[in-house]
């Protein structure tokens, strides 16, 4: 079984990417639905994103009112065990809150469920990167530093010069990750999903 942690700052497009990723995995075969469980984590007292994901055919569970990278790490372990027991999925896609540090989540998982393969993808927002960089620098850095794959999203909303500047800036935080430029508003190349799942 694999676990994909999808992190990245608020509004970067994580949910939009998950919708496409889940469709890619499930494909047109209804039997594949049981392969994927999406675990949504939201920091607010009400859940929003899971409502967008439900109806796609795949299982969606949620944990809200806290962050699974810190205050809800105990609940995360319990929740993962429930998911594995109830659904036996081949893949759990875990959407972190926009303020979560994915390396903390990976640490919790590898300590408590060492038999699973755990991958981290972080989504960044090309349009807002420069605006967020100064006030949010530490958070952005700590979100990106453990990513295996970094998606620079919303590339359709910036010009080429800005995009080059943004990419160079993001690479200073993590130069080991695989980088892909995407627009979740359009069809994402399947090679991106393969890389996210450790297949590429």
């Amino acid at each position: 079984m694999k676990i994909l942690i999808l992190g990245g700052f608020l509004g970067s497009g994580k949910t939009s990417i998950i919708i496409q990723l889940a469709k890619y995995i499930v494909g047109n075969n209804p039997e594949n639905i049981t392969k994927v469980v999406i675990l949504e984590n939201e920091i607010g007292e009400v859940s929003i994103d899971d409502k967008m994901l439900r109806g796609g055919g795949y299982e969606v569970t949620n944990m809200f009112s806290g962050c699974i990278c810190c205050t809800m790490s105990g609940e995360l372990v319990i929740g993962l065990n429930h998911i594995m027991r109830d659904f036996s999925p081949q893949l759990i896609i875990m959407e972190a809150t926009g303020v979560a540090y994915p390396h903390n989540i990976r640490e919790t998982i590898t300590q408590s469920v060492p038999e699973v393969d755990c991958y981290v993808t972080c989504v960044t927002d090309a349009k807002r990167w420069k605006k967020l960089l100064r006030p949010m620098e530490m958070m952005l850095k700590d979100q990106l530093n453990a990513a295996d794959v970094i998606l620079i999203n919303k590339v359709d909303m910036v010009d080429q010069d800005t995009l080059a500047e943004v990419e160079a800036s993001i690479r200073t935080f993590n130069h080991n990750a695989k980088f892909f430029k995407v627009s979740a508003a359009e069809q994402i190349d399947t090679k991106v999903f393969d890389a996210m799942l450790g297949n590429g």
Partner: peptide, 20 residues
């Protein structure tokens, strides 16, 4: 998690959960 929408951690003003 059983009903797929469980609020696993109920907070309140008097919440004293650890590490919170």
């Amino acid at each position: 998690m059983g009903n797929n929408s469980a609020k696993l951690h109920e907070h309140s003003e008097k919440c004293d959960c650890e590490g919170h």
